[in-house]
Write a protein that binds this DNA or RNA. Structure first.
Lengths: 223, 223
DNA sequence: GCAAAAGTGTTAGGTATACACCCATGC
DNA sequence: GCATGGGTGTATACCTAACACTTTTGC
């Protein structure tokens, strides 16, 4: 694929990935330190980078997660493209933002020399326009929780109904009635019992469930 | 704003606007002829163009609609960014696609030397990846119809309940019960009677309604 | 008076909500 | 035996869906 004439290429094409996951029951974002004086010093930002010649934006997101965070097989969904002229104070960069979701078993054992999961409540004053990106990601996640099975990417393959309910409660920011939640989610017929139980917990062990399909499916409203 | 070093700027940043409107009761898209041999000859495509140095993607969309279609004040919403390496066979172009909605009174009297509204059923084999863009736009519109007041951008300022119902039926592709539709839409409290009636129709004149707010508001489900 | 679209209520079935107690396990 | 979270059913209010006839106007 050839490049267009140089005079038409004003902008750098970048991607940023807002990777979210539950760690210790808290919703966290994957960030690393940003230090680009003079405009951005000692700030945190999501992982991102420049799209190269031979890849599309989603492929770039995957590559960058691997290179800058040693993460693979992350669920990705395109969020929004941020193109304001001054969104990066250094020079013109247009960024296609992706939402990334990681299962809690991966996230809680995640260790990396630069990137780490930080509770979203502590993510203030991020570099570039990443605070706005985070808000966009949370809005999208809230919306999708209500009518899709996207929650499966925030849970281990086997999970309890209480864990599933907790994901809903934290993302939707409202408490749900346990009996009604169970009735509803079981009626949707998207999860099933694995036949196994929790082990090594200090209270009554819960039954473990799994999603029937690994796809995100559209549903009549969950909440 | 300075440009980034040339070697990072692989792609051209473009926008394409999928402008939709009702003309004669049919949902139509605004297209013009595309003739870019050898890859694209005698095809139709949505209006689009290159984002320039001093504007963001939404501003570029507005400028291009004005320049290439003499259209202003179009409702715009960012749809999706198309970045496949070969989506434009000539050279690497990343396009931020926008959904544009135009009211039927504007669309039905629209005349332009190159652009025209064509029923979407006749829009086959569009240039570039514009067929995929159209599908994305229709999906988005369907989704938003169900839980927002976005339909206001597809209706004249004053409209009848039957016109409103027809917009829903055509976009959602299913017939709705007249009595139930009226009950539901009035209960949402987003429209009100203007106090005026249709004139010059050859049947019983209908009451005219208008939206209370010019914003797109989120609602509990309409359908 | 006929064609065309406007306008209008009721009923039945299903869904959502509110709510409290017993159970299994580890320590 | 106590602390912790797991698991379960019912009654009511509300909402949804199905359905047909009369009214107003132009011609």
């Amino acid at each position: 694929m050839q490049k267009a004439p140089e005079q038409f290429r004003f902008a750098v094409m970048a991607v940023d990935v807002i990777v979210l996951a539950f760690v210790d029951g808290k919703l966290c974002g994957l960030v690393s330190e940003v230090n680009r004086p003079p405009h951005y010093t000692n700030r945190q930002g999501f992982l991102g980078g420049i799209v190269d010649e031979k890849e599309n934006a989603e492929e770039a997101s995957e590559r960058i997660l691997k290179q800058k965070g040693n993460l693979t097989k992350v669920f990705l969904e395109q969020l929004y493209t941020f193109s304001d002229v001054h969104r990066d104070k250094r020079n013109r960069v247009v960024s296609v933002a992706y939402l990334g979701l990681v299962k809690p078993d991966i996230a809680s054992s995640y260790r990396h020399k630069t990137a780490k999961f930080v509770p979203i409540k502590e993510l203030k004053d991020l570099a570039y326009d990443h605070t706005e990106m985070l808000a966009t990601a949370l809005r999208r996640l809230q919306g999708k929780m209500a009518y899709t099975s996207i929650s499966q990417y925030l849970l281990a393959d086997h999970f309890t109904l209480s864990e599933l309910q907790s994901v809903y409660e934290i993302i939707l920011k409202k408490p749900l009635d346990k009996r009604n939640f169970r009735k509803k989610i079981l009626a949707l017929n998207i999860i099933e019992e694995t036949g196994t139980m929790q082990e090594g917990v200090k209270n009554r062990p819960a039954a473990l469930y799994k999603f029937k399909s690994k796809q995100v499916t559209e549903l009549s409203l969950i909440v």
